[in-house]
Simulated assay, not measured.
Amino acid sequence: MSVRPGTLDLRSVTVRTGAKTLVDNVSISVSEGEMVGLLGPNGAGKSSLLRTVYRINRPASGTVLVNGEDAWRQPTEWVARNVGAVLQDMPAEFPLTVRDVVAMGRSAHKKLLEPDTSHDHTLIAAAIALLGLEPLQGRAFRTLSGGERQRVLVARALVQQPRLLVLDEPTNHLDIHHQLQLLRFMRGLEITVVAALHDLNLAAMFCDRLCVLDHGRLVAVGTPETVLTPELLRRVYRIDATIARHPETGTVWVMPSAAPPIGQPARAAETAEQASVHRYN
């Protein structure tokens, strides 16, 4: 199922909704075959930025280049053939089986009402097997758990045979076994992957580079070793953490402190004490 990997160039991309700026002048370049993690706290702009690549959020300014072409100047079919996406809010209430949903990935390569070919059937079966979905393929998609649905949507994206795969929280709803399994699988694909992730250690373990957003701005780009520093974690995530090396992989390992950042414990204790006084007096 391998295809030639693609490239992604985000050039000074800004995304707004009304008067609010969600993404502010962000530029990121992703090379062929790279796996890049998009990090940042909730509301940092990760999903909004990814949606410009898959032509859901039109940038207020800037350019989105996929394989050197302006994605917003290409037909929808071109984008669907070149970019596969697994987004957070895929509707689940439709009467389709798992196999039906996976097969939807071939629609970008077909004319309206064109039947599946033997090549289509081969790709669909391969994707179902790769994601371990054989026992579920006859089940209604709406009856699946969150983690099962996520694996089905990844299979559907793979069936598109995209050159670029965009993943918005792909490990959401997955237990730790399936998180590791999925990211190992993504790492082994011969395509370019850009994934928004919350788990810093998984990002460090599997990504070539990390891009960190904060309040819509790009604040750090580089390898996990150069990006995940105590200073950045304190500034962006507002946590104190020790940075070590994983004993088996040698990758960066983030160990957050259990204590709140300096200055917060006293205020928190004082607030709790004041609340108790008001409650019982």
Rank of each mutant, 00 (worst) to 15 (best):
Q150L: 04
R151Y: 02
L174H: 10
P170C: 06
L158I: 05
P170L: 05
A157N: 00
L158P: 00
V212W: 11
A204K: 08
M186K: 03
D175I: 07
F206R: 00
H177S: 12
R156G: 02
G147H: 04
V152D: 03
V159R: 01
V166I: 14
R149H: 06
L167V: 00
N172R: 14
E169A: 03
L153R: 09
L200K: 12
D208T: 05
Q161K: 14
V166R: 12
Q150K: 05
Q161T: 13
L180S: 07
D199Y: 10
E169G: 00
V152H: 06
A195P: 15
L189H: 13
R151V: 03
H173R: 07
A196F: 04
L202G: 01
R149C: 04
L180R: 09
R151A: 03
L174G: 05
L174W: 14
H198I: 06
T192V: 14
L200A: 13
E190M: 10
R151M: 02
M205H: 07
L210P: 07
H178D: 12
Q161C: 10
I191P: 13
Q161N: 14
P162I: 00
E190A: 15
N172L: 12
F185S: 14
L167W: 02
A195W: 01
I191G: 10
Q179I: 02
G147V: 02
L183N: 02
R156Y: 09
M205N: 04
N201A: 02
R163L: 00
R156L: 03
V159P: 05
L200T: 10
L182W: 11
L158F: 02
D175T: 10
H198T: 02
L197A: 09
E190P: 14
V212A: 04
E169H: 01
T171H: 07
P162Y: 01
C211F: 08
I176F: 06
I176V: 05
T171L: 04
P162G: 08
Q179E: 06
R163K: 12
Q181G: 14
E169R: 06
Q179W: 07
F206H: 00
A204S: 12
I191S: 06
V166W: 06
H177K: 14
D199E: 11
F185C: 14
A196R: 02
L167Y: 01
V152F: 07
V154E: 03
Q181R: 15
V193Y: 15
L189N: 13
V194H: 09
D199L: 11
